[in-house]
Design a protein around this nucleic acid. Structure first.
Lengths: 176, 176
DNA sequence: TTCTCAATCTGCAATCCATGCGAATTAGCA
DNA sequence: TGCTAATTCGCATGGATTGCAGATTGAGAA
């Protein structure tokens, strides 16, 4: 099935609703707690690829006292059930993606924003040098500049052309 | 230029010799210390994608007293000069790759071995959903099973078919 | 509804990886 | 040979994540 068609079929790609996740948890013998339900809701349709800390901050607003440990636990549970993908864009903290479609990511090297992308034929790449390795999966991480940061850079370079002071941008960027 | 041709031209792909790195360091106004020379040598032609700790262990054998801090420092310097690539296979520690060809990686999800692979057309992937993002770079991480681990799994499953006890395999594996 | 107990939650300690810092040392040039 | 900025090293620090143990609670059984 084409993933873009599948995306069209639901609002948020292949993402289970909180109610469906509740069922899935029970079906797997896990209990459904208020903390978990809150997190199901916060992840549903979430396209920002939050870190555990970010999600914890959001969760804390609605449920003061919830533990960061519980956030990690629940995200890990979701991931091991295949309802969530863990992604690493090289910024230190793991990011969580409720979209379970076959997709990949772009990260803005300036602001760190992460976005889902779909790559045609990514499951049929011609790979040389495998030397016996059996490939089960490919994940592609693109890096580049988002529109907002591109505009910002453009603004700054115009300013510098006018002789104004140049502000340093960019957080640390590590992976080549 | 085709990277495979380029690989044929030198023994280890696009990898500078310790002597060349020495020149490069001096040209960049950096000093060449015995510690750095040792690390140049250890990285030259190194295809195992070592972590900083692993390299530190090797370096310590030949130069007792060398500091882990210095290993990190030198690797970082090499990377910022483009003589080394930092890679993250999701196992926690950053790995270092002296091959600066345009290539990608496969990681064995069982033993963690990392190998270089070349992907035809990886710079011309058809990407949907960029939404204004300008892509500067793509890195592809394949995961799968190396030949040694595949053989091991096969052996274990034969044993289990014979009713023998099944040993658990695999270290933790995190990224989906 | 109440009981029961394993699953869960929470907070804190511990771990792993990586970097900041400052005093002592040293490469490389004059 | 001497100078000086770069480098080394060890220790402390910081961020992300997990281990642990006692208190709490979901959800099936009575």
């Amino acid at each position: 099935m084409d993933c873009r068609l599948r995306r069209g079929a639901t609002t948020f790609g292949s993402v289970k609703t909180p109610a469906e996740l509740t069922e899935t948890f029970r079906a797997n013998g896990l209990k459904v707690t208020p903390q978990r339900q809150l997190l199901f809701g916060l992840m549903h349709g979430n396209t920002v690829h939050p870190t555990a800390e970010a999600l914890y901050a959001e969760a804390s607003e609605r449920m003061p006292g919830i533990s960061l440990r519980t956030v990690y636990q629940t995200l890990t549970d979701l991931a091991s059930m295949g309802e969530l993908r863990l992604i690493d864009v090289g910024s230190g903290a793991t990011r969580f993606d409720p979209n379970t479609d076959d997709h990949h990511h772009v990260v803005c090297s300036s602001c760190g924003e992460v976005r889902d992308v779909y790559v045609a034929g990514s499951d049929r790449l011609k790979v040389d040098g495998l030397d016996g390795f059996t490939v089960e999966q490919a994940s592609i991480l693109f890096s580049g500049t988002c529109t907002a940061c591109a505009a910002e850079v453009d603004k700054v370079s115009r300013a510098s052309a006018r002789g104004e002071e140049r502000k340093p941008t960019n957080p640390k960027e590590r992976m080549s």
